[in-house]
Design a protein around this nucleic acid. Structure first.
Lengths: 140, 140
DNA sequence: TGACATTAGTTAGCAACGTGAACTATCGTG
DNA sequence: CACGATAGTTCACGTTGCTAACTAATGTCA
């Protein structure tokens, strides 16, 4: 029913989308199975993609506050997945990047660790896959 | 590039979708603004839609374990949004349904409380909206 | 230069959320 | 009636995210 009042559509879609995304996220969190939590993995992925990055920029990308980033980075450091390099010009900031171990983990995860989700996706047809692909971009 | 090896596509999509859904959920959680947390709202919505329901069935629908449901229901009860009716035949179970206050809240939320998300959705074109609508169904 | 605002990041304390393990109460079945 | 299965609860724990308040370094401007 694409001819319903736009406001109604938006509100309904917003409500539906919120619940769906929320529940999907909960399920994904439970099925992480990559030895690293979704939170850490998302951050690691961002650090991987955006090269050396500061904590502040990471907070922006991850849509998270700075104290949260502090803790995320502490965990990743502890796991040996990232390393910090102090900025020689501005001693308040440090640049963060993946260690070889971090890169290795990202490769593993990207290549074969998403079995759970991939198996579910495999049940969908090409049209639905395209829809999800596009939806992911829109969500970003 | 719809002709790439299916496995590669699936893994990439899975990885992308995971991160997108995850971050979107985080953002939505922060912007809840309906006087009730996303967790409670999702549960309330399920109770609303699936009529009187038991705690176990709610756990299944919400993709959550039973102890979590216990706590969710306790919160909703405390807020006066739901009520429990003991099953007369099986005294282990109780049926949960919305109170008038709960129904009223759901109406409000569905109708106009999703301003944040709706405002963002308003920037998208019809095609993208349809995509998201479909994606929400697929995610379910 | 030296006071003051700004910026980067941390620490501390709090609350929400979800879990597994162990428990109670009830039900069904041989 | 004993014994296993089922519905829920309690308990203790870990993760995640936040705000408020802090430290430290930087920039600005009289």
């Amino acid at each position: 029913m694409p001819s319903a009042p736009p406001d109604t559509d938006l509100a309904g879609l917003a409500s539906h989308l919120r619940l769906s995304v929320f529940r999907a996220s909960r399920t994904l969190r439970r099925e992480s199975q990559s030895g690293i939590s979704p939170t850490l993995l998302a951050a690691l992925s961002t650090i991987d993609r955006h090269g050396p990055i500061t904590a502040g920029d990471l907070a922006t990308h991850e849509q998270v506050r700075k104290p949260t980033v502090t803790r995320i980075l502490a965990s990743l450091l502890e796991e040996g997945l990232i390393e910090r390099t102090p900025d020689p010009l501005d001693r308040r900031v440090a640049w963060v990047q993946l260690t070889p171990a971090g890169r290795s983990l990202m490769r593993t995860v990207r290549r074969r660790s998403d079995r759970f989700l991939a198996r579910r996706l495999a049940r969908l047809d090409a049209g639905d896959l395209a829809t999800l692909e596009r939806a992911a971009e829109i969500l970003d």
